[in-house]
């Protein structure tokens, strides 16, 4: 009985509060996406509900804009940028954190410092480089530029993780005759999985959301990413097409969330198993 009350107070209530805080805007998106325009501006109605839901906004989004191609572009670009960032960061972080070669400390700091540069001012000089490399209006422009703000974070997060993995584990494996590559592959990287996962989520999400570079470096309507495309076609002057915009926001994020939930549980389980043995 008291245990139940304690659980309610220390767990269920706070969690519920969090969920309301974090999810309310999504509920709002959903209601807006289903509301007919008429009800949107009617102050007499309860704004939290709609009595005459409509799929018009969804239809408009899917068939009158390039939403599906945008989703595909965003996916391709995000996967590409994430893979590139993760691969380079993993190598760099392992080298800096584990090999401790001459200059590694300075390198770590240098990579960290690069993150301090705000993109707002980078995009004009950067556009010259992108254009010089012939990447203008090509997804590769984003796959190559997004790592500039993903790699520093990933490297530093992974450094932190590598530090939590006892050096002895690696040394033991080496004593047992494993090569350095085998140690990386079978000992260090699996143990750093939560960190790798965090990097993955971080990198993918930031790529998915980026606006400024996507706006400047891509031009053709069918090359655009979801955030830029939605703004282009659904903000008409001073009128925001709220319904389709919110439908786009939801459709654009929920599938990703589901994918994450799969990743999270999968890796967490793998990890817990690995540590228990």
């Amino acid at each position: 009985m008291t245990r139940g009350v304690a659980r309610l107070l220390t767990f269920q209530l706070p969690l519920a509060a969090f969920l309301v805080f974090l999810l309310f805007p999504f509920y709002w998106m959903l209601v807006t996406a289903l509301k007919p325009n008429r009800d949107l501006y009617n102050l007499a109605l309860n704004p939290l509900w709609t009595w005459s839901p409509t799929l018009d906004h969804l239809r408009r989004l899917l068939w009158e804009t390039h939403f599906l191609p945008w989703m595909k572009n965003t996916l391709v670009i995000s996967v590409g940028a994430t893979a590139l960032s993760l691969a380079t960061s993993l190598l760099a972080a392992y080298a800096i954190g584990r090999l401790r070669f001459r200059g590694s400390g300075v390198l770590g700091i240098a990579i960290f410092l690069t993150y301090l540069v705000p993109p707002v001012i980078l995009f004009i000089p950067l556009s010259r480089i992108v254009s010089g490399l012939g990447l203008w209006d090509r997804p590769a422009a984003l796959v190559l530029t997004y790592p500039t703000f993903l790699v520093p974070f990933c490297v530093w997060l992974l450094l932190g993780y590598f530090r939590t993995i006892p050096q002895e584990l690696e040394d033991c494996a080496r004593v047992d005759g494993a090569s350095r590559l085998q140690v990386m592959r079978y000992v260090t990287f699996p143990l750093a999985l939560p960190g790798i996962l965090s990097c993955l989520i971080f990198a993918f999400t930031l790529s998915w959301n980026e606006y400024l570079y996507a706006l400047v470096f891509l031009s053709s309507t069918d090359q655009k990413t979801v955030p830029v495309g939605l703004a282009t076609e659904l903000v008409t002057g001073d009128v925001f097409q709220w319904g389709p915009l919110m439908a786009g926001a939801l459709l654009g994020s929920v599938p990703v969330a589901l994918a994450y939930s799969f990743f999270v549980e999968h890796y967490v389980a793998a990890l817990t198993g690995a540590l228990k043995e």
Partner: peptide
């Protein structure tokens, strides 16, 4: 819950 709590981070900032 773990999936839901990530949502605010996932949705493009320009839209949220």
């Amino acid at each position: 819950v773990r999936a839901a709590m990530l949502l605010p981070w996932i949705v493009p900032t320009s839209l949220s």
